[in-house]
Nucleic acid binder design. Structure first.
Length: 573
DNA sequence: GCCGTTTTCGGCCCGACTGTTTTCAGTCG
């Protein structure tokens, strides 16, 4: 996949054009980069199928940029980019990653001090050469050194599951102040993106200065990056930035909309406003100086001719068009999910007993759970042999009878071998209520082989669900490469369900895959893959992921009642 | 360089904060 490489080049070209004060090109290249980066189709494939013409079908890609992509595919480089880089041969990627450093400053640093890399910059700053440059000063120099120090540390994005509790704590902390009317975590947290780059808090208050005080004095704050009258920015001890913005009550809806984003969604909205001779900003929707909407998100969207849409949808991936045509999905709700369909007990590698898991799940309000311990060859995870499995089934049946208010399905997570066969006989599998099959090893196979391997498992009438279908682990491994279209086709034909694994660093399937599955009419199941009763709450992350993939109640089998689900599992294949 | 249910030319999203300046450029989101 060359998309990321090309996106990176376009980002850098955008910065070079900023250096040279070229108008409008930077935005064009940046936008193209952003859109290419988030595309799921490989640019090379698109080009192979339809040439430069097909490339120009892509949003943000016109003649000029299509030519550049074509050039990169054919020659492995882009002349225009090489020329820009020759004029200013600096490590743009890492220099501009330093907080507070942008293209203009990088240009001056290169021209006056020959700074090419972050190391050069650090040396120059330590020698106090930086503060002597025009429009630079001692504070800038100090900030540069701090920025470099920070960029050396463990930075980057954080898992939603890890940040959500912290964001909610900050939210509540501000909300509890008597001069704060409301406090909401907006941004990517409200959109529930799988990873989070910073925490954006919106607060409604008529005492902004007091909110600033409280926010900057939170115990997690390690450094105050900016502290203004209505906006502050801090660095938290975990290495994540948090911003707060205070607005008046009458702007709440517009502000919430604005700070929820995403950026592209907002740009489209603001253009729509312009077309209606209106202006949209965080204070409201304005005709001249008159605010025509702003108190609620609904009214902002309504005046723009749109229906309100769930934050999870706001990625400018078709939701605006859907909203205009009243074709928005009715996303599966948090209360629609009635059970958890993957978890482990101490019969394999889980920390708690079946009974403890059941009781904890009941407390969460689940009507049923599936205990799905590991089998056979997965010894490292305490995989059970066939004799043990029979005892395990008996134990589940016994506990199921004893428990009141929750039903327990006899489940297994079987291993898909390299050749696509399973590590447990069909005879034993037939005794289970629910069978998950998944790949745990030998990821490095060709696309065709891995696809065939999984399809082979789906052909088995005993297999109900493919668990964590792509095996990715966020920020650690990308998973195997698989022909997802073929997987969907096979799942549809064989009546196999695909899992949305809700484990915080898996979230597998991802939103793009889910959307495709929904379109293909393939059913989904949500499982937390809990290895401890404390992880059962991750079900929320699975629902979140389903929602980001435009899944509705009917698409997810966890929304069925117990009886209906049992019937479904019996007859699906 | 992109884009068009008014347009193939003439627009292009908007505002806060900082540090350096005496009115604003640069950066960020």
């Amino acid at each position: 996949m060359i998309n990321q490489k090309i996106a990176k080049i376009f980002y850098q070209m955008a910065e070079y054009y900023v250096m040279d004060d070229v108008a409008f090109k930077p935005q064009a290249y940046e936008r193209a980069g952003r859109l290419i980066e988030s595309m799921e189709e490989d640019l090379e494939e698109i080009y192979k199928k339809g040439g430069a013409k097909a490339l120009m079908e892509i949003e943000g890609v016109g003649q000029g940029i299509a030519d550049k992509i074509e050039e990169f595919i054919k020659a492995g480089k882009i002349k225009e980019y090489e020329k820009l880089r020759k004029d200013c041969p600096v490590d743009l990627e890492h220099l501009s990653a330093i907080e507070g450093i942008g293209p203009k400053m990088i240009k001056v640093l290169y021209e006056k001090l020959k700074v090419k890399t972050v190391e050069d910059l650090e040396k120059a700053a330590k020698k106090h050469l930086v503060q002597k440059l025009p429009r630079f000063g001692p504070k800038v120099e100090e900030n540069i050194l701090r920025g470099i120090e920070f960029s050396k540390g463990d930075k980057g994005r954080f898992l939603l599951g890890y940040i959500l509790p912290l964001a909610r704590q900050i939210e509540k902390r501000l909300q509890d102040l008597d001069f704060v009317e409301r406090a909401v975590a907006a941004g990517s947290i409200r959109r529930k993106k799988e990873t989070i780059g910073d925490i954006d808090i919106l607060a409604i208050s008529d005492k902004p200065e007091k909110v600033m005080e409280h926010f900057c004095a939170m115990p997690e704050v390690e450094e105050i990056i900016a502290k203004g009258e209505t906006k502050s920015s801090v660095r938290l001890d975990i290495g994540l930035d948090a911003d707060v913005r205070v607005l008046p009550s009458e702007s709440f809806g517009a502000a919430l909309q604005y700070f929820t984003g995403n950026k592209d969604h907002n740009i489209v909205l603001r253009k729509m406003a312009q077309d209606k001779r209106l202006k949209l900003n965080e204070y409201g929707l304005f005709r001249g100086k008159k605010q025509v909407a702003g108190k609620t998100e609904e009214e902002v969207y309504k005046i723009l001719g749109l229906k309100w849409m769930e934050p999870e949808l706001r990625e400018n991936t078709g939701e605006i068009e859907a909203s205009r045509g009243s074709e928005l999905p009715k996303l599966v709700g948090y209360k629609d999910v009635r059970g958890d369909l993957q978890m482990h007990s101490d019969w394999s590698d889980g920390a708690h007993s079946i009974e403890e898991m059941a009781q904890a799940a009941k407390k969460l309000g689940h009507e049923y759970i599936a205990i799905t311990d590991h089998t056979g060859e997965l010894r490292i995870a305490g995989g059970m042999d066939e004799k043990t499995i029979l005892k395990y089934f008996a134990e589940i049946e016994k506990i199921d009878k004893e428990q009141k208010g929750i039903r327990i399905l006899k489940g297994l997570e079987v291993n898909i071998r390299k050749d696509g066969s399973l590590d447990i006989s069909d005879e034993i599998l037939a005794k289970a209520d629910i069978v998950l099959a998944s790949v745990h090893s030998n990821f490095k196979m060709s696309v065709q082989d891995i696809t065939e391997r999984i399809c082979c498992a789906m052909e088995n009438p005993q297999v109900d669900i493919i668990a964590h279908p792509t095996a990715r682990v966020i920020q650690r491994r990308s998973g195997y490469e698989v022909d997802f279209a073929k997987l969907l086709e096979c799942a549809k034909r064989t009546g196999t369900v695909l899992e949305i694994n809700a484990y915080p660093d898996r979230l597998d399937l991802n939103d793009v895959h889910i959307k495709k599955a929904v379109q293909a009419g393939v059913k989904l199941s949500i499982g937390t893959d809990s290895h401890s009763k404390t992880q059962l709450g991750n079900i929320e992350l699975g629902i979140v992921q389903a929602r980001r993939g435009w899944a509705e109640k009917k698409d997810t089998i966890n929304t069925m009642g117990y009886e209906e689900l049992v019937k479904f599992l019996k007859n699906e294949k």
